[in-house]
Design a binder for these strands. Structure first.
Length: 456
RNA sequence: CGGGGCGUGGCGCAGUCUGGUAGCGCACCUGUUUUGGGUACAGGGGGUCGUGAGUUCGAAUCUCGCCGCCCCGACCA
């Protein structure tokens, strides 16, 4: 993409309403524009990031065997009356009515809808297990939205629902989701820690939240520092292997890690003092097992092998996709701007033409840009008539992982500079070598990391 | 919803107390200049001062109502 033809409304000054760093940077980098309180438009750069996060979630869901669908944002109140939640949910639910006076609502979550789909089509235990999910906009009418997309009223969320014949199978689904979530966050460059959680209005007996450590987090968290050393890495996981998934779940939930809601001081004190940490965290996902709560209330049953109708065991799982855009920035930035992890970056690399209008420099940039595009490397070429300083500042602000600086000084030696945003390390090389160097450092080059699922 | 604050050009702000016909920086347009970390100079365009009513010869400024937004708290992916 040539920047001169793009739409990247960066701001030199921070709008006064933005208080936390991710909100400030998203506004300054031209990623979002507030439409009204807690509701945002996603501008081109932000939209690219949002789509990347969504893509990673889809890919990891597919890998774990979960099936994408798409349910509507507007739902009938009748379904919620059936589950008993229409009255329980409270003011947070946006209630609307159509021209016939029928009560509708803008979905804050989708247990009712997905259960309705399930009971319409699934009759036999032999159709289980089934795990459906979608990524769709939600609306929760927060009393006080804040922190930009981290706590909007409208937000983009992956929510999934599993249906199993019994508790053991449902707990396997729970563990499977935990593993797939761990991998999802790792691919986004995040260390998200599963913490035992309180259940809230969704209900459920077993539930873990995933929290990213950041000073601006809304929850106070207590944890054994041993847990931050754990990584899933690229180990091959068989998602159908109950014991393997359970073992990974045990590994990642073994060390003490809880939010203030479930914190147990006595247990915490058993952690060796040197490893006892207190911090703040941003919740970026949650998984639940809630048994037959909805299936019982809404008649979602299957026939078991002996022909008896039994309510299915369910769980649900959510990842805040739009919130993650903010959370990643909270976890990865410096004074100059955002530092995108490779897989979520809006572009992988940026080219800075230091002397726009100089025929030799322009030609070198064009040639390099052409090679990058041909190689499939998403590149933003800053071909504006701007001073070098302004271009560097823009690149730092929008945080692309790699910057290639092209100017007369380097070209005199036949070189350009490739610089890593995260480390600040620069490296001079011939323009022809850039593509090869970026290919070698690609996260997609690691084993089976980025298979594209055929389902999405 | 309780408490606090703010709405003046795209962004950041001054002007409001003490009414007199709107200003600064950045951004934008034109020209010259400059070109390896937000260049310099000159010229220029753009604002019914959130909104409605009232007071007044005269309202961004005073009074009342309404709307929007932000911050702290309880609540939430």
């Amino acid at each position: 993409m040539r920047l001169s033809r793009y739409f990247l409304p960066v701001l030199r000054e921070t709008p006064s309403e933005a208080q936390i760093v991710s909100h400030r940077l998203m506004l300054r980098a031209g990623m979002i524009k507030q439409a009204s309180a807690g509701i945002y438009s996603w501008l081109p750069l932000g939209y690219r990031v949002l789509r990347n996060i969504e893509r990673i979630v889809h890919e990891e869901q597919a890998r774990a065997g979960h099936i994408p669908i798409l349910m509507p944002t507007v739902q009938s109140a009748d379904l919620w009356r059936e589950s008993g939640r229409y009255d329980v949910y409270g003011e947070e639910m946006l209630r609307i009515s159509d021209r016939h006076g029928h009560d509708l609502l803008y979905g804050p979550t989708n247990e009712e809808l997905v259960t309705d789909i399930f009971r319409a089509h699934v009759r036999s235990y032999r159709d289980l297990p089934l795990s459906l999910y979608h990524i769709q906009w939600k609306f929760r009418d927060e009393i006080r939205p804040r922190y930009g997309v981290m706590r909007g009223r409208e937000f983009f969320m992956k929510d999934g629902y599993n249906f199993d014949i019994d508790r053991d199978s449902a707990l396997h689904a729970y563990n499977r989701h935990m593993v797939s979530y761990l991998r999802t966050y790792e691919r986004m460059g995040l260390r998200a820690i599963p913490m035992r959680a309180a259940s809230g209005p969704i209900g459920g007996d077993d539930t873990h939240e995933f929290l990213v450590l950041a000073d601006t987090g809304e929850s106070e968290v207590f944890y054994d520092s041993g847990i931050t050393d754990l990584t899933l890495g690229d180990r091959a996981v068989d998602y159908d292997d109950r014991e393997e998934c359970a073992a990974i779940a045990r590994e990642f939930t073994g060390p003490y890690a809880r939010t203030d809601e479930t914190h147990d001081e006595a247990l915490f004190l058993k952690v060796p003092e040197a490893r006892r940490k207190t911090s703040r965290g941003i919740e970026v996902g949650q998984i639940f097992y809630f048994g037959t709560k909805y299936s019982g209330a809404m008649g979602a049953t299957v026939q078991d092998p002996r022909g008896r109708a039994v309510p299915v065991h369910m769980g649900s799982h959510g990842i805040g996709v739009s919130r993650l855009a903010g959370a990643i920035i909270e976890a990865s930035h410096d004074d100059d701007g955002i530092i995108w992890p490779e897989e979520v970056a809006p572009f992988r690399a940026g080219i800075v033409n230091v002397k726009q209008g100089d025929s030799a420099t322009d030609a070198a940039c064009e040639a390099l840009y052409g090679r990058m595009v041909s190689a499939g490397i998403e590149t933003l070429y800053d071909d504006r008539e701007e001073r070098p300083g302004a271009k560097f500042a823009t690149m730092d602000l929008i945080g692309l992982p790699w910057r290639i600086t092209v100017g007369p000084r380097g070209l005199a030696k036949g070189k350009v500079e490739l610089r890593c945003r995260r480390t600040g390390q620069g490296e001079e090389m011939e323009p022809e070598a850039v593509v090869g160097r970026l290919d070698a450092s690609s996260p997609a080059a690691s084993p089976d990391a980025a298979g594209t699922p055929d389902t999405v």
